[in-house]
Amino acid sequence: MLFQPAIIALLLASAVGLLMLLASAPFALRIIARWDIRSGSEAQLALERGTYLLSTVLSFIFTVQLAKLLLFVFTADRLAVMFVGAMCAVGTLNVNEYGFPALLGQILVFFLAAMWLAINHVDAQARDYPLVRIKYWLLLALLPVLAVCFWLEFQYFRGLKANVITSCCGSLFSAEGKGLSGEASAMAAGPAMLLFYPAQLLAVAAAVWQWRRPGRWAAYATALGSAIAFVAAISGILAFVSLYIYEHPHHHCPFCILKSEYAYQGYALYLPLFVAAACGLAVGAIQPFARVVSLQSVIPTVSRRLAALAALGFALFAALASYQVLNSNLILFER
């Protein structure tokens, strides 16, 4: 393992998050076993008060996860000089087979935490806390995910050895590369655009539908549309948006756009994208509970708000990406 402050901080942050959740597990089990909203006993009161801690802890983990995601990519980027062939985060992540899974794991934890918080939020608005048990079951289910992600991250950092020969965005995301990201960018810019814009449009349309007339189909369509739009967005960034930003016909890299050389344009793209996808997925996460009596008025309200955020986020993202394409000096398509 490299003796790097950022690596140690990342691992510690993950460990703290995992430990916090682990420490909450017995409490979650106690809630699942003993929760009785009708009871006025002091034990029940103590359980209720404990739920505040867990919500706070989960919000904390969620926020830290977002910060960690950035720090992870940044650290990978800075470490690139340590590895032969690495020029940015892609190269560092490729040093061993755990790099990209670790990154994907972090993104997954981010979205799962967002969905849990959405469920938590609607539950806390109903006077009988109807989802308490489900919520804490889900929390327990989150635990192994967090543990696996921590393990991936640990394995990845442990396996980082200087002087490893790796391949970077030049080769990985260029058309000859194999694997998923290679294929996405192997897609020519034209077809990628044909996937990119309809997917964003679909997500926005579904979210607007849910916002105008919240309902079951609209909600699931929003969630599905958000998931598709997220994947299409990442593929689109790989296939053509990055090319226009770098003004280079072969530089497919999702990370370099986060650098100061490119005026941190990546943040402007990723921020609305991640927010929108999280909101869209959250709409789907709370929908199964829409028929619970005490939630019948709560869920449509919350869901509409989330859908509006998702629609705005995806629209903003698509607009920013288009702006960067139109403002670029690179010409991929001759008129």
């Binding site: 402050p5 950022a6 901080a9 942050a13 830290v64 910060a67 960690k68 950035l70 720090l71 940044f74 650290t75 986060l258 100061s260 941190y264």
Partner: peptide, 14 residues
């Protein structure tokens, strides 16, 4: 570096 500030903030605020 913007990210350096961000990571430092992470080290201390977290």
């Amino acid at each position: 570096d913007g990210m350096q500030v961000a990571s430092l903030a992470f080290f201390t605020i977290f």
